Simulated scan of single mutants.
Amino acid sequence: MPDPLLNIADIDERIAILKENLRELVEQSASYSGAADDDLMSRRIAEQEAEVELLTKRRDELSQTRS
């Protein structure tokens, strides 16, 4: 769960890190083979995407309250 005290700059930084992690996970998943590896990578990618979505919503909420 994202920290509610984060500011927009902190959230943007975390989003950038997560997107880089996602890029690396996608590259890794392309090189792995096997159902177990695919399932693990799919879960990790889904977790990272969910966190990006939560942080993006939080950033948008903060932006609206400051407008």
Rank of each mutant, 00 (worst) to 15 (best):
S42Q: 15
N21M: 06
E49C: 04
K19S: 02
Y32M: 00
D38S: 13
R23I: 07
I17E: 01
Y32P: 00
D10A: 04
D39N: 13
E20A: 08
L25K: 13
E27P: 03
S31P: 00
D12W: 02
G34E: 01
D39Y: 12
L25T: 10
I11F: 02
A9E: 05
M41I: 15
L40D: 14
D37V: 12
A46T: 15
R43V: 15
V26F: 00
I15E: 04
S33Q: 04
L18Q: 10
K19W: 00
I17R: 08
E20N: 09
A30L: 05
I11R: 01
E47W: 02
E24Q: 13
D10N: 05
D12P: 11
R43S: 15
S33R: 07
S33V: 04
M41R: 14
D39K: 11
D12H: 04
Q28F: 03
E27V: 08
I11P: 13
S33K: 06
Q28L: 04
E13W: 05
E24R: 13
L25G: 09
L18F: 01
A30F: 03
V26P: 00
R43G: 12
A46M: 08
R44L: 07
A50S: 12
S33P: 01
L18C: 11
N21L: 05
D39R: 14
G34T: 06
D37K: 09
A36T: 10
E24H: 12
A16P: 02
E49H: 05
I15N: 03
E13M: 02
E27H: 05
Q28S: 01
D12I: 11
L22N: 13
I8Y: 00
R43D: 15
S33A: 03
M41V: 14
D38L: 12
A50D: 12
M41A: 15
S29H: 07
R44H: 09
A50Q: 10
I8D: 02
E49I: 15
K19C: 02
S29F: 08
A46E: 13
E20C: 02
A9V: 07
Q28E: 04
S42L: 14
V26T: 11
E13D: 07
E24I: 13
S42A: 15
I8V: 10
G34M: 01
E20L: 08
V26R: 09
I11W: 04
A50R: 03
E27M: 06
E20F: 04
L22V: 14
S42K: 15
D37H: 08
L25R: 08
A36M: 01
I11G: 04
E27K: 11
E13K: 09
I11A: 01
A35Y: 13
S42C: 14
Q28R: 05
A35G: 04
L25F: 09
